[in-house]
Design a protein around this nucleic acid. Structure first.
Lengths: 209, 209
DNA sequence: CCCCTCCTGTACCGCCGGTACAGTTTTCAG
DNA sequence: CTGAAAACTGTACCGGCGGTACAGGAGGGG
């Protein structure tokens, strides 16, 4: 019972790394069992088929993702009561966390799966959709707290702004991976931070050019 | 000679649609030849292997992509001499083009390939990298034209800002695809437009909240 | 008429996802 | 300590797929 969970976790660990490097279609079950040191029968004892592996992988990834955001933004809230400052601080902490990743961000499973949509069943696509909607709610909540205190200097939709956080993260990951420049992702997050700052704070006085 | 090119193009058309829906690993050569109405031998006459298909597909995609940006932003430049206004107009035109896509954006091959990196050889990864660098140069050039005329209201790196265009596009595609909300991508482009506008234009006077 | 391009047909290989199922070891609750 | 359930292993097999090899044919241009 306990051992089963451990093996399952090991399979998921190996699979996650492989999938983020090669995609689902490029990851064979045979290589997973070779690296895990398990037999094929053992694999199919834990997962009925590849689709169920994907399901488990995605759910675990999303949970972990949510946990990380919870930690970062709750740390930020601990450090200041102001909703804008804590959001900006959260983005700063996030960018630091991202730039500390030794080999750059390994890739986002949600994005990976959306580029394979037809390979998976509706349940997985629905899970994926809900993950993105959860991001929208999360950042939307924080932004609404800000809007309640600070005036918006341009008329923007709060949900769309919340989506922009996800956009920049997902897009930054793509750029970082493609360019093989780990820093790009962190820089993009800071750029987004500048946008949020400008949207809510008066601009520093500047000489007219 | 002529006929060969036509068949090749037909294969690439079918392949592109399939790859954007299912990813490379999820697209079989057999299904491509079935839909193209060609035999396996015929396929391998045109492409030595799947990797070469990917190469041709990516090159064609990038060329087309460049052409579209050329058209949009040259149209924008035709309509106004001001570099900022023409950039903002270009983003507007881009968002309109994106929201006019009947089934939403089909997906970006560059992003698709970056999520499969290990499956392809270095040449493809280099091509992909160069495509992203070309985006950086393209948008960077336009932004530098703006900076030459308008003061930047926040200290941001121009190349990082140029990358933000790519980030928001790539991220917006991921969100749009995952959420199955075609509009999200266009909205994200407009949100980016707002950011650029704020960076260069004085904010409209607002009552202090 | 002949050659070259552009294919078709056939046969084959090895890998992979998946199935089936019988048998064995490990674990833990009672 | 024991027995049943959990957690596997081993073996054999299937069909699809990527890829190879190679022979041959249609059709157009010089």
């Amino acid at each position: 019972m306990r051992k089963g969970e451990e093996t399952r976790t090991r399979i998921l660990d190996v699979a996650e790394a492989a999938v983020l490097q090669k995609g689902f279609g490029g990851t064979s079950i045979e290589e997973l069992i070779a690296e895990t040191g398990i037999t094929k029968s053992g694999f199919f004892y834990h997962f009925r088929d590849k689709n169920e592996l994907a399901k488990a992988l995605l759910n675990r990834y999303i949970e972990n993702d949510e946990r990380i955001y919870d930690e970062i933004f709750s740390r930020a809230r601990d450090l200041t009561d102001d909703p804008l400052q804590s959001f900006l601080l959260g983005l700063k902490l996030l960018s630091e966390l991202l730039s500390d990743l030794p080999n750059g961000h390994p890739g986002c499973l949600v994005a990976g799966i959306c580029y394979y949509e037809r390979l998976f069943d509706r349940e997985i696509q629905e899970t994926n959709r809900n993950a993105v909607l959860a991001w929208r709610r999360r950042f939307g909540r924080m932004l609404r707290d800000i809007v309640a205190v600070y005036p918006l200097r341009e008329p923007v939709d709060v949900d769309q702004l919340a989506d922009m956080v996800s956009s920049v993260l997902e897009g930054g990951i793509v750029l970082s991976k493609t360019l093989k420049e780990p820093n790009t992702l962190a820089e993009q997050v800071l750029m987004l931070r500048t946008f949020v700052k400008m949207l809510f704070l008066p601009v520093a006085a500047m000489p007219r050019g």
